[in-house]
Design a protein around this nucleic acid. Structure first.
Lengths: 122, 122
DNA sequence: TCTATATTCAACCATATGGTTGAATATATC
DNA sequence: GATATATTCAACCATATGGTTGAATATAGA
């Protein structure tokens, strides 16, 4: 009854840290997809997509069903929920932050404190 | 209403994917801490801790205040909230996984209490 | 001024990551 | 059986990551 599937926040957050994998998850949230279908939207090889899917599988986010030569993937949001649970502890700091922000707005000192440049390779 | 600061999910999830950094966040959720204080619980050098803190800063999760020679860090949960917002979309795919969640959070506590080495590959 | 403290920087190292290509495996289909 | 399709595997490559050490920078205190 207690199916223990090994899940680890390291693996979950790492899996979610890649835009390609997040996009794959988005796709899987609409329907089950084969490996080829998952790979199709991206300018990467099937082998690369296969690796991404393995990362998602390893994090427990994706479950694979093999029928003949096609591998069908479906989303398992359990680990996502676990990640949310971890984050929820810090939600109160979001509210505090809003209070601070409000104060800053009043003081009219709301300049963008971080100016990031996006140079990620993909 | 609330203007979101530019947040990059790649950076946020990547920052959260490391147990040392998650532990640092946990520490900062209790009080502001200096770099030395943040480094203290871990068996790593100050230089390594400094790098971790930079990763957290780059993700917007930590804000640093320099007073004299001491750098004080405080948590900014805004990006965490952004991560949760992304995840919330997939909450509906979460079906009956409380058991996994429980094990996960327990494992997380265990991991944090020992002086861990990142060797948890099953 | 001399020294101790707080932190970063630079160089280096081993391993991980995301990507490629080309061959291999397995299964449909003709 | 021959061939096309779906996917993985193995080897390789460039860059990123997390760690180290030792020197540098800056400030606090005697």
């Amino acid at each position: 009854m207690v199916e223990y599937r090994y899940t680890d926040l390291d693996d979950v957050f790492h899996a979610l840290a890649d835009p390609t994998r997040r996009a794959m998850i988005a796709g899987l949230s609409k329907s089950e997809l084969t490996v080829s279908q998952l790979a199709a939207p991206f300018a990467i090889t099937l082998a690369a997509a296969s690796k991404h899917i393995k990362v998602l599988e390893h994090a427990g986010l994706v479950v694979r069903t093999i029928e003949g030569r096609t591998h069908t993937c479906r989303l398992d949001a359990g680990p996502i929920h676990a990640g949310m649970e971890w984050m929820r502890h810090y939600e109160k700091f979001w509210n505090e932050r809003l209070d601070i922000l409000e104060g800053l707005l009043l003081a009219e000192d709301t300049k963008r404190s971080r100016t990031k440049k996006k140079g990620k390779r993909k």
